[in-house]
Design a protein around this nucleic acid. Sequence first.
RNA 1: GUCCCUAUCGUCUAGCCUGGCCCAGGACACCGGCCUUUCACGCCGGCGACGGGGGUUCGAAUCCCCCUGGGGACGCCA
Length: 464
Amino acid sequence: MSNLRVRFAPSPTGYLHIGGARTALFNYLLARKEGGTFVLRIEDTDVERSTQESVDAILQAMEWLGLGYDEGPFYQSERYDLYKSKVAELLGKGLAYKCYCTPEELEAKRQIAMQSGGKPRYDGTCRNRTDQPDAPFVVRFKTPQDGTSSFHDRIKGVISVENSELDDLIIQRTDGNPTYNFVVVVDDAEMAITLVIRGDDHVNNTVRQIPMYHALGYKVPDFAHVPMILGADKKRLSKRHGATSVMAYREMGYLPEAMVNYLVRLGWSFGDEEIFSMDDLIEKFSLDNVGRSAGVFNPDKLLWLNEHYIKTGDPLRLGGLVAEILAGQGVDVTFGPDMTSVVKTLQDRAKTLVEMADGARFYFVAPESYDEQAAAKFLSEDKRDLFELTVKHLEAIDDYSHDNVENAFQAVMQDSGLKFGKIGPSVRVALVGGTVSPSIYDVVAVLGRDRVLSRLQKALASLR
RNA sequence: GUCCCUAUCGUCUAGCCUGGCCCAGGACACCGGCCUUUCACGCCGGCGACGGGGGUUCGAAUCCCCCUGGGGACGCCA
């Protein structure tokens, strides 16, 4: 048992996106690998944007991906007493101060700083003031002004910044609520987090948080900043690059193991290996082979992995998922052919569950009409003898095993003197309504005697 | 603009720490062929990269410096 404690701390202002999911995954994997503890914390200090729906959406997505946590979820909105006492402590120690500058004044100062070619930092106007005006105020943390702040990142190595580049962060708003950069320090420390794994966009925050750990007498945890995920244009991944919500991929027919496998390989590698189950990952994952630079999200590769997992997935499980999709489309599979058999005929030809459902539809719903071009070519009057012969031989067998079906067609070929290429396409159109389907023998075997015969009779009646 | 980070095929990456086994390996995508009752699968083959410039060294993708490109941060958001 290790004493590794990691956490995932999303802010509930939307669904769980690709980037957040990867961060959560890395945390989860390391916790499981090391026998550590995975804490889930909801960072909802932004009252305006945080919603319960978002919390639910995030929880649901994590569950879908299989990322179970050991402690939490803890809500920061329920821990304000703790934060307030810590702000008071800093104020008491003289390590924080009240700032009466208004947002307008600050904005003006930022503009000026930017124009004169500098960094838009707070100038410390209120840092040493001694009066106590009767006016709204925020509390700022006194960031050291001299020297250097640095930390060792488990992925990027040493990162250091001159303190003169930093300014005094607001840790408590005018309304008395604490801000992110403060609560994240308090919580990571109070929850005894030993390793903070988070997005690379927090590197600058981390530098500024280090002095706060010291000021509050906390032990500074280890950090690992994972690189960002970008879109094809190398811009930060966003909606315009396509779906960024993890759950949107479930809707599109993706399997969670494909998503997990894709996510972990974006920025992490293990030699030449591409396929990893969750168990493989728990055994093999390590921060040591996480890359340092941002990566581009590649939907094609995700699709390929999904294809792989569909191909190798358990037909019974896949069948259940496909049945759900079909049910959503009003197709009841209860009285249709055996779903597991149906799935087996489709596993090699579907890239997503949605595609599989589309391909499976005809098994449960007899064609009401035939594809125009297909019918013209394969359901013409001159096929009458062929259909009658086919019906005859298929009526002759009771057990529609693959072998029996194949033998029946062999007989049709014998009697008609035709090659399969002259028979199959017509039967296919009669059975499925179009020209695309799994192998005819499979289709016939899975559909079974009653459905096959009835569909052939119907086609026979429609020859023209 | 300032600061931080980063840099191998179009993309994800191996190799870099511990220079020579690398005229750079794998995967996705793409192109060609084979298989074939349709669509797919599968199999075989191909295209394709060490950003540029200086060093160090007998020798550099690997070490050092500069430039350039890319990303991030600069909020009473997280």
